[in-house]
C-alpha cells in the first residue's frame, strides 16, 4: 500500500508563498498529474514529496509512514527528472544499477533487474553506452528504467517529457502510461502540458498560485471546471467568457440576449462556453468574424461578441469570411457559470 497523503503542506521562499496549505490524497497505484503553469508550485510540491525540499508546514505520509522529516533515500520513492539526470560518468548499465548498488543488492539480482527494466524501456542494446552517446529520448528511457529498477512504492516525475520533440513526446506518453500501469506504483507526474495530463492521468490536480484549484478525473475537469481559472487554462482554445447581468431570477443578460441560467441572487456572473459547444445559425449571440484559422479537421473562428474575444470551432466546410456577422447558439447543457467575485463555478 502506498497511498500518499499530503496534509496542510505549505512552503515559503523568503516572503513568497510557493505553496499554501495543500491537501491532497493520492490513492495506491493511482496516476496523479499535477498540472499548472510555471511558477504555480507544482514542482515544489513534488520536490517536497521527494524530500528534496522541506515544507515550511504540514505533513507528508507515504503508506502509513510519516516521511516529511526523512531524507529522500528513506522514503521509498524514485524520481525522474526533467533533464533526466543520467550520470554522465557511468554507463547506462551502471546508471540503472546505481540505486540497487546503494541498496547493496546481490549482483545477480542487480543484473536481473537492470536487464528486465532495460528491456521494458527498449534500451537493452544501449547498456554499455555513456549518456553522452545517447539521444534525449534514450536518456529519458534510461532515467525511467533507473527509477523502475528500484521497484519503488512511489514514482515521482518532474516534466519528464518536456525536453523531447513533439513526435517523441507522443510516443513516450503512451509508453510511459502502459509501463507505469503495469508497475503497481503510485505516480505523481508534474507537467504544464494539458494534453499530457488529460491523456495520462487517473486524476488531475490543477494548481495555480500555490493552491490546488481542482482535483478530479480528466473529463470532469474539462466538462465542469470548478473555477474560472480551470476553464481558461484547460482546452485549446480554452473556454469563452462573457459578462452576464441578472434580469430576473434565473434570467441573465449576455451580450444583448437573455438566457436562462442559475437562480443566483448575484447581480453579475460570468457566462462560459467551450468553442466547440456552439452551433452557428439562429442563436441569441451576434458575433463578428475577425480571423479564420483553418486547421484541417475543423476551422477556428476568432470573433468578437459584445466587444470580447470569442472563439468558435466550426466544421471546415462551413463557408465564412472575415467581416461576416454570425448568429451563434451555445448548447444549453454545456453552458457554465462562474461567480466573478469568488471565481468559482455556480451550479445552474
Amino acid at each position: 500500500m502506498a497511498e500518499i497523503r499530503i496534509n496542510r503542506v505549505a512552503k515559503q521562499f523568503g516572503k513568497t508563498h510557493a505553496l499554501q496549505a495543500i491537501d491532497l490524497t493520492i490513492a495506491d497505484r493511482e496516476f496523479m498529474v499535477l498540472l499548472g503553469a510555471s511558477g504555480c508550485g507544482k514542482t515544489t510540491l513534488l520536490r517536497i514529496v521527494a524530500g528534496l525540499e522541506t515544507a515550511t508546514a504540514g505533513q507528508v505520509h507515504i503508506g502509513d509512514r510519516r516521511v516529511d522529516q526523512l531524507p529522500p533515500k528513506a522514503r521509498g520513492i524514485a524520481m525522474v527528472f526533467q533533464n533526466y539526470a543520467v550520470f554522465p560518468h557511468l554507463t547506462v548499465y551502471e546508471n540503472i544499477a546505481f540505486g540497487l548498488r546503494m541498496a547493496k543488492l546481490a549482483d545477480s539480482e542487480i543484473d536481473k533487474r537492470v536487464n528486465r527494466t532495460a528491456a521494458l524501456m527498449h534500451i537493452d542494446p544501449l547498456l554499455k553506452r555513456y549518456s553522452g552517446q545517447l539521444s534525449g529520448g534514450q536518456r529519458q528511457r534510461v532515467a525511467v528504467s533507473r527509477a523502475l529498477a528500484m521497484e519503488p512504492d512511489v514514482i515521482l516525475m518532474d516534466e519528464p517529457l518536456s525536453n523531447l520533440d513533439a513526435l517523441l513526446r507522443m510516443e513516450m506518453r503512451a509508453e510511459l502510461k502502459s509501463v507505469l500501469a503495469e508497475s503497481n506504483t503510485t505516480t505523481i507526474y508534474v507537467t504544464h502540458d494539458q494534453v499530457e495530463a488529460m491523456s495520462m492521468a487517473d486524476r488531475i490536480a490543477i494548481m495555480d498560485q500555490g493552491h490546488i484549484v481542482q482535483c478530479d478525473v480528466p473529463v470532469e475537469i474539462y466538462r465542469n471546471p470548478a473555477a474560472h481559472f480551470v476553464g481558461s487554462f484547460i482546452g485549446n482554445p480554452p473556454m469563452n467568457f462573457l459578462k452576464a447581468s441578472r434580469v430576473d431570477t434565473g434570467q441573465w443578460r449576455v451580450a444583448g440576449a437573455t438566457l436562462s441560467g442559475p437562480g443566483s441572487d448575484k447581480n453579475a456572473l460570468d457566462f462560459a462556453i467551450r468553442p466547440e459547444d456552439i452551433t452557428v445559425g439562429e442563436g441569441p449571440l451576434q458575433a463578428e468574424v475577425r480571423l479564420l484559422e483553418p486547421l484541417g479537421s475543423h476551422t477556428l473562428l476568432a470573433c468578437r461578441v459584445d466587444n470580447t474575444a470569442f472563439r468558435v470551432i466550426v466544421d471546415s466546410d462551413t463557408s465564412v469570411s472575415i467581416g461576416d456577422t454570425l448568429s451563434l447558439n451555445p448548447m444549453a447543457d454545456r453552458v457554465r457559470w462562474f461567480d466573478p467575485d469568488t471565481q468559482l463555478a455556480v451550479p445552474s
Binding site: 524514485a78 527528472f81 539526470a85 550520470f87 546503494m102 541498496a103
Partner: peptide, 18 residues
C-alpha cells in the same frame, strides 16, 4: 554540475556525502 545529478543520487539511496 547540474544539481539534479546530485538530487538523483539522493533519491537513489545516497546521503549528501555519498
Amino acid at each position: 554540475i547540474p544539481v539534479e545529478l546530485e538530487e538523483a543520487a539522493w533519491t537513489l539511496g545516497c546521503n549528501r556525502w555519498q
